[in-house]
Design a protein around this nucleic acid. Structure first.
Length: 574
RNA sequence: CGGGGUGUAGCGCAGUUGGUAGCGCGCGUCGUUCGGGACGACGAGGUCGUGGGUUCGAACCCCGCCACCCCGACCA
């Protein structure tokens, strides 16, 4: 490709508030252009990167035994109603109508479509297992898109779905996909951590995220230093410790308390005890049913809403209660009781068992209760792990130290079990014993654009992008210097470009009559792995200047050695 | 959805007593330059986000709406 003819050039000015490196580099380098918030054009350079990323994923998925197909982008809305995901999908589902009034969801994930496809066939245990996948645009009406390709409202996802007779067979595929993902990310230059995670609206019992550690990432997780445990903060299990579990239970009392004691800090000051000795109540409302839930937890811990929703099987249904909601309960912020509000459900964190003689729980204007003991003085409907793991927590079992980290979630693998097949009529196979059973499923996703952004977050310097060869838009960035004044440089450049292209190499040839600075800076910005410069200087030595984007030093390679060197470079990069 | 902010040339930005719009980059033509973002001359390009109001007169003041950005909430 001649750069002079390439649509989408590098640009100097980008909006000053763009702070995410990958976003800025993709815009400046001429890879993407924004349409409206969260929706991007992929320019010729950008789509080459995207196509290469897709190729890597496709090769590895095929090698792992999966089969590519494609589903329609518009999903009949009845399918989503069948699994009851139209209102708790987690992302705002976008819908459209056709001329006849038929309603469709713009696909944001395709579990229902794939199950619907499979149930159109009469499947027997002999057909199982199989794994079918696609690359397709996904639509998610995110409340807030951010960071260029990191979080968009429209993106290409590789989504795979596997179908099995039983759990044991599924587990083999889960491991197979996990290993496939490690290979994929390694090939594009990413070190990923495998993090235990929450299934959210996708459903199922467990899943793992593949996370690239990065400060700008949105995934928060905790891990031990030896890597033996890594979990998203929404699922991380941790040790509550024993605050004073050996203390003797004292008699329950209502005591006078000064009016200024309002916050947790006031309590610490007044009673001269750490936060862990107080009861804390956090109120939520079910957005579907309107029901009020009060989460009771040890004062030094925070409630994690995801854990709470999961403990109650109310995934995606809870929201923070408002002051008005509290008013209906007959209370106000700061005065919520740990038991006794009529019409509210009480759920406790397991930390309630780590403390004797709690303070709090029945706050009124001038009084509160002390020596409150869980089990003796009050009981919640259920006691579960609903607390956010603090940054310095220890693991639940072995009590190893945990560290909080951030990262970009580039892929994930889900156990679905029979979550979908049991809800969708006819999603069954005929087993050996001549009975129909719902298939056991898993699903596996990789965001193509986000993975590209993650690569850029890791592989760049102050001059621009440093593409790994596997997804670089071109192998070779060839440029001439001084071609404006010297026709022989131009002619030799044109000839070399034709030779290399004819030999099958992917070459971006900067044939513009621009200044050296302009051309070399553009080359650094675009970030193609191998740069070849042809100038008066190199022509005298019958060769080109050879420089890798990853290296500082350049050297001369003669024309007769060039192809050999390029082949060696490509081989070494595999 | 809550809080804050911004909409002026393709991009980045100026523009206060309210008087009919400018700078840099980029783009075009010509000339000089030519190994780390050159220089000169000339030139093209604007219903100042949108609807209404105040005014002799609005980019500027007032109200509504829309879009976008940041923080939070939310969320692969």
């Amino acid at each position: 490709m001649r750069y002079s003819k390439l649509f989408g050039k590098t640009i100097k000015n980008v909006q000053s508030e763009i702070s995410v490196a990958s976003h800025r580099l993709l815009l400046q380098g001429g890879f993407i252009r924004e349409s409206v918030a969260g929706r991007y054009y992929f320019l010729p350079l950008g789509i080459r990167v995207s196509d290469k990323m897709i190729k890597v994923v496709e090769e590895e998925m095929n090698a792992a035994g999966a089969q590519k197909l494609i589903t329609p982008v518009l999903h009949p809305l009845e399918l989503w109603e069948e699994t009851n995901r139209t209102r708790s999908a987690g992302f705002e589902l976008m819908t459209v109508k056709d001329q006849r009034g038929a309603r469709f969801a713009l696909g944001g994930t395709a579990e229902e479509m794939m199950v619907d496809l499979v149930r159109k066939f009469t499947v027997s245990y002999k057909d199982l297992p199989f794994n079918i996948y696609q690359f397709s645009p996904k639509f998610r009406d995110e409340r807030r898109a951010r960071g260029g390709l990191l979080r968009t409202r429209e993106f290409i996802m590789k989504d795979a779905y596997s179908f099995h007779c039983d759990k044991e067979d599924f587990e083999k595929e889960y491991e197979n996909m996990g290993n496939t993902y490690k290979r994929i990310f390694k090939r594009v230059g990413l070190n990923t951590m495998v993090v235990e995670s929450d299934n959210g609206y996708i459903g199922g019992e467990y899943c793992h995220e593949f996370v690239v550690e990065s400060d700008i990432g949105e995934t928060k997780f905790l891990t031990t230093d030896d890597g033996s445990y890594a979990a998203h903060e929404d699922v991380a299990k941790f040790d509550r410790g024993e605050v004073n579990a050996k203390e003797k239970e004292k008699p329950f009392e209502i005591v006078e308390q000064p009016e200024w004691v309002q916050s947790m800090e006031d309590n610490e000051k007044h009673y001269k005890l750490p936060k862990s000795h107080f009861l804390k109540n956090v109120v939520y409302k079910n957005r579907v049913t309107g029901e009020i839930l009060i989460a009771v937890i040890r004062g030094d811990l925070e409630v994690n809403k995801t854990k709470l929703e999961r403990a109650l099987n109310l995934v995606g249904e809870l929201e923070d209660a408002t002051v008005d909601d509290l008013k209906k309960l007959g209370t106000k912020p700061g005065y919520v009781h740990s038991w006794g509000h009529k019409g509210a459900r009480y759920i406790g964190d397991i930390s309630l068992e780590s403390v004797k003689n709690f303070i709090g729980g029945q706050k009124e204007e001038k009084t509160d209760s002390i020596n409150v003991n869980y089990g003796r003085d009050f009981k919640c409907e259920v006691l579960a792990d609903i607390a956010l793991a603090p940054e310095d927590a220890a693991t639940a079992g072995s009590k190893k130290k945990l560290t909080a980290r951030r990262g970009i979630e580039v892929g994930n693998i889900f156990q679905l079990g029979t979550h979908y097949s049991s809800k969708m009529a006819g999603a069954v196979f005929m087993d050996k014993d001549n009975t129909e059973k719902p298939y056991y499923m898993g699903c596996y996703g990789i965001g193509i654009g986000r993975t590209i952004a993650a690569v850029l977050e890791i592989h760049h310097d102050d001059k621009g992008i440093i593409w790994p060869l596997s997804i670089a838009p071109f192998t070779i960035h060839m440029t001439t210097l001084g071609s404006g004044t010297s026709p022989e440089i131009r002619e030799r450049g044109d000839k070399l470009y034709q030779e290399l292209t004819a030999a099958g190499y992917e070459v971006l040839y900067d044939d513009r009559d621009e200044h050296a600075g302009t051309k070399l800076n553009d080359a650094d910005l675009i970030g193609i792995p191998l740069r070849l410069v042809l100038s008066k200087k190199t022509l005298e030595k019958q060769g080109v200047e050879w420089k890798l984007r990853t290296e500082k030093e350049a050297r001369i390679v003669t024309f007769d050695q060039l192809v050999k060197e390029i082949d060696a470079f490509i081989d070494a990069s595999r």
